[in-house]
Write a protein that binds this DNA or RNA. Structure first.
Length: 108
DNA sequence: GTTTTGACAGTAT
DNA sequence: AATACTGCCAAAA
């Protein structure tokens, strides 16, 4: 049975490990997965694997704390709402990465 | 095996 | 600040 690449598996695992109330950027995920510049692969995997693995895709955002969708898109508001439900507050349309960026610490 | 797509990031203009 | 261009990676067609 063919499986995903190590990169993909790591990405999936990492995303599943994002604690509630935290967010991660594509670049960060890619970096942790071993491909510092594979943010696009992460994005692809994310939307592609979300069906198979119930991934918290809403916790994965673009650099700078911005969502991956243009304002006005239905998915944008959906994601925003999901995040706010998890105590992630939006400031001026962006997330405060200083507070919510997942640093892979999880030493709660 | 080559081309296309995809929910990106970084730099330059 | 906003846009354009480039670099990068993985999966599907």
């Amino acid at each position: 049975m063919i499986e995903y690449s190590d990169f993909s598996k790591k990405v999936i695992k990492l995303i599943k490990s994002i604690p509630k109330g935290n967010v991660a950027t594509y670049g960060l995920i890619a970096k942790l997965a071993g491909r510092p510049q594979g943010s696009r692969g992460v994005g692809w995997l994310l939307h592609s694997s979300t069906r198979k693995h119930h991934l918290p895709w809403q916790r994965v955002i673009k650099s700078g704390g911005k969502l991956s969708f243009p304002e006005g898109a239905n998915a944008y508001f959906l994601q925003k709402e999901l995040l706010e439900k998890e105590d992630v507050i939006f400031l001026n349309g962006r997330i405060d990465l200083k507070k919510y960026l997942w640093k892979k610490i999880t030493l709660f």
